[in-house]
Nucleic acid binder design. Structure first.
Lengths: 365, 365
DNA sequence: CGCCAAGTTGTAATCGATTACAGAAACGGC
DNA sequence: GCCGTTTCTGTAATCGATTACAACTTGGCG
């Protein structure tokens, strides 16, 4: 049997290193993994041989033997989305110290891409999965859940499952948004919706509504403004919602948007239509992407600890992959931060409840 | 030898499938890879056994044997950056049809993270590498270039190397920016810089300068405004540049920013300082991120075909990995799109050349 | 000096796929 | 009916690591 010698360009194998150091492959492997179980002189020999040959263990071989790939699949609806991108970054910083790498499963908001990633799971290409998409991917009747891999969801709980999740308290966030707007004096509230049937959107909408009711707002004056089919949490969704808003005969005086991007799209339509924010309509978002610091007016929003969410999810998954099933951490809630800024203010005088309504005729005359 | 039977939860191996179908593992492998070389009845048998057992080939085993991982490493300075995120998306859509997955190498703008990804390359965990970072990662004196993997760069050429790259013509872009501003009447121009020594930034700055000179602008009136150390192409870099701009005694009347994010940060500072855009100062960016459609005023910019750049890079790499070294494609230049919009306009009257300067004293008096 | 335990090292099995090679079966031509 | 070719299938080698097990050395203790 002729062994390929490690010439320049060719990759050295453990056998090359063993030959060069004059020891067996087992010793090389041990010298690298458990140096305390090998005589110091040999460790030294092996180390020299390793650096001389530029040896890096072949990952497939190691994975095949140890049944651990040290890779994690992150399933994300869209990498191009600010929010997901930042969470992804947090995940990476959380996994890196443990030596785990990230394979990105970009759904691109297209449902037919799930199959590829389901295969990744069943092919044992990853040791665990982090979902940012709010559901468990599946295709051809085969769910990723049945691959038997540790799984964690971030940003959204997974309904009807016991998959641990990390996120903020979306209900509290929705209620707080309603409270903020109601306390500014608003009595007609709108919610510029994200994707229909999405867990997070539903949570935000229902709790916004609850919060508004709790503040004594008339149920008929809490409206959901749809953003259009398949537009998800995008600028364009906000644009569509803004156009619907303009077409309304009895407009809300304040609008809570299902995401910051929606809010920004919404504000753009307002500006173009000559409706000023916050004088004519208050607008707020949620997520707290960096961009909200640079809008005009600066956007009131609820900041999610994006990076921390990612890191916490990563650490939770690491624990599960190590077999430490800290049942205590099955539902992690991190605090959000309410940023009351310039895009929300008191309602216009003619819409501000009974007292102002009395003044309204004078203003009109 | 006792074989683990494929119970629920356990992953089926090719041996399980072979046993169930009553054939050898070789036949199973062939039935899946080259069905035309196996008797139809057996193919049928195997297919049934596969779906009954939920078999998915183990990826490490396959990779180890075939020496192809069907994975690509994408090294990106920061996943949280809009521009890179969109290119990444293009890469993914380009690679997916060929069955390649993406491993993300997020440098996070921190130089010490390179080592991890260099190891990925040497561990043969990927078949190819796409660089968005403008340089070849390396650590401990070992460059990723010596791993002998196909490599492609997107967005930036790699100096002193023959690594193929895909991008726009940054020199043409810089010149066109200068031309646009000069033809609007501007005679004092600024460049809000990106990271020092970055190839792309250098290209944009030098060509902007060249373009301005070609339009007859006085060399002394073309200034580079630094954004601050280590801030790269960020909003904060634009804020820093904006502050430096305000501190200048003889301000440019138009500023070309090294990225859209810089431009947005810059405009924020202008607004807060009561300097209006474009009346007092014209501002333009480059990249063409979606967000520029939602700024006020809408940002003049140069749109790079982000997604197409990613896809083109992916296809170039696919060709190299398949051994088709189309030397013709070693430097791909895609067209950019100049978007002249509301953030750039004529210079303020008192700065518009000789005639206006004659008027200036009258104004002061 | 003999024996047992502890410490080292090497041999070879193993992970799960692909594929070279050989053998068997089927087929056709003379 | 025999032989060569084609088509199909199975056996076993192979990829490159880790690690169980065996073998050998060394040292301590009675």
């Amino acid at each position: 049997m002729r062994r390929r010698t490690a010439g320049p360009g060719a990759t050295a194998t453990i056998a090359d290193v063993a030959a060069r150091a004059g020891v067996s492959t087992a010793t090389v492997s041990r010298a690298l993994a458990t140096p305390d179980r090998v005589r110091p002189e040999l460790v030294e020999l092996v180390m020299r041989a390793v650096s001389e040959s530029g040896y890096t263990p072949n990952n497939s071989a190691r994975t095949l033997r140890t049944q651990r790939s040290r890779m994690v699949l992150v399933v994300v609806p869209s990498v191009a989305n600010q929010m997901y991108a930042h969470v992804l970054r947090g995940i990476d910083t959380g996994l890196a110290p443990a030596g785990y790498g990230v394979i990105i499963g970009n759904l691109d908001n297209a449902p037919n891409k799930e199959g590829r990633f389901v295969d990744f799971a069943f092919a044992r290409q990853v040791d665990g999965v982090i979902l940012l998409c709010g559901f468990v991917p599946g295709s051809h009747g085969r769910s990723m859940a049945s691959a038997g891999l540790p799984m964690v969801s971030i940003l959204s709980p997974i309904v009807d499952s016991d998959i641990p999740d990390v996120g903020i308290d979306d209900h509290a966030a929705g209620r707080e948004a309603a409270r903020h707007l109601a306390r500014l004096g608003h009595r007609r509230l709108g919610y510029a919706a994200g994707p229909r049937e999405h867990v997070v959107d539903t949570a935000r909408w229902t709790s916004f509504r609850e919060g508004a009711l709790a503040e004594g707002v008339d149920p008929a004056d809490i409206v959901r403004i749809e953003g259009g089919e398949g537009m998800r949490y995008t600028y364009r969704s906000g644009v569509a919602a803004g156009e619907r808003f303009l077409a309304m005969t009895r407009r809300p005086t304040a609008v809570f948007c299902g995401s910051d991007e929606i809010a920004i799209g919404f504000m753009k339509v307002m500006r173009d239509a000559g409706v000023s924010v916050p004088e004519d309509v208050s607008v707020m978002g949620i997520d707290g992407i960096e961009q909200t610091d640079y809008t005009h007016p600066v956007l009131t929003t609820i900041r999610q600890p994006r990076q921390d969410l990612g890191r916490a999810g990563a650490e939770l998954l690491l624990g599960m992959m190590d077999g430490r099933s800290d049942a205590a951490h099955r539902r992690v809630r991190l605090p959000f931060e309410f940023l009351a800024r310039a895009s929300t203010g008191a309602p216009p005088a003619e819409a501000a409840g009974r007292i102002s309504q009395d003044l309204a005729p004078a203003r009109m005359g």
